[in-house]
């Protein structure tokens, strides 16, 4: 029935198709409405916000870009610090994850399974459960004293701690992501490389690494988003205001007396922008990595 109508495009209307699109439009509207409301709010003055429903576009009199400028000036430092944190932590956890996965997947040795189980268990440890041990650990280490000789680093102690913590916390999930990808690599190819005289390290460098681009995109996007959006570890580990990251700055946009919703919304968009950029940059490889094609 339906295929007949679809083929015969000159006569009649395909009601099934219309119904499908109607449902899709409603669902899209449902999911996009918070985003739209946020965007509209960010362009409204305080009076216009109070005087209108959130998702209605700002009236000409109430339109302003002021919240964006204010949000940017107040988040600037946080964005900078977050980049300083997220870029190395993401790169490190991806590199370590890749190395661990290679060792656990493509190299044969005794007791592998037990180690893999440890990595898997690491994925399921919730952030909240390690908060107290984490702070105790860093107090014990006393990173600030260790770095006292290098003032440039000593000032950034909190961020360094956060980088190491996020790297460590990210390794298990990165390892498992890489492992599932490396398991699809033809073992005969690696054997051929061994017969060609390549060592375990050379095989990683010359063969595994060049083939890992798509899965690196996946882990980079995933880890960057995770680390960028993290508030909990930052809240616990960062003490100095110079080191505060974007999630902390965003939190401070919430005034104590007057709620400036337009400022908060603009701030949220500013804070979300970098993750969006990362996704656009690596999107193509991401799709390839998720599809599992080498």
């Amino acid at each position: 029935m339906s295929s007949q109508t679809a083929n015969d495009s000159t006569s009649g209307i395909d009601f099934q198709r219309i119904g499908l699109y109607a449902v899709l439009v409603v669902m899209a509207a449902f999911y996009l409405s918070p985003l739209e409301s946020g965007l509209m709010t960010a362009f409204k003055s305080q009076e216009a916000f109070i005087g209108s429903t959130p998702f209605v576009p700002p009236p000409p009199s109430g339109f302003t870009v002021e919240p964006w400028f204010e949000a940017w000036s107040r988040l600037q430092l946080g964005v900078f610090n977050s980049l300083l944190l997220a870029i190395p932590a993401t790169a490190l956890s991806a590199i370590f994850g890749s190395l661990a996965a290679y060792g656990l997947t493509n190299v044969d040795w005794r007791g592998q399974v037990a180690v893999i189980m440890l990595f898997v268990a690491g994925i399921f440890v919730p952030y909240q459960s390690v908060l107290v041990p984490l702070t105790q650990f860093w107090t014990m280490v006393g990173l600030e004293d260790i770095l006292a000789g290098v003032p440039l680093l000593a000032e950034r102690t909190g961020l360094l701690e956060l980088i190491i913590t996020h790297t460590a916390y990210g390794i298990p999930i990165c390892t498992i992501l890489f492992r599932s990808y490396y398991a699809t690599i033809d073992p005969e190819m690696l054997e051929a490389a061994r017969l060609d005289g390549a060592t375990v390290a050379r095989i990683y460098w010359k063969i595994i690494l060049p083939l890992s681009v798509p899965i690196f995109a996946v882990t980079l996007i995933y880890q960057f988003t995770q680390i960028w959006n993290d508030l909990l570890f930052a809240l616990v580990l960062l003490t100095s205001p110079e080191n505060q990251v974007v999630t902390l700055s965003l939190n401070q946009l919430q005034g104590s007396m007057v709620q400036q919703y337009n400022l908060q919304m603009a701030g949220a968009f500013v804070a979300a922008l970098p993750t969006l950029v990362v996704y656009v940059l690596f999107g193509e490889q991401f799709a390839e990595g998720v599809a599992g094609e080498s």
Partner: peptide
């Protein structure tokens, strides 16, 4: 002896070429 020290070359069923 490790494979690299044997001076042996092998041709595999799947060819096992390096795709990149």
């Amino acid at each position: 002896a490790s494979p690299r020290d044997r001076d042996i070359a092998m041709v595999f069923q799947s060819y096992a070429l390096y795709p990149h």
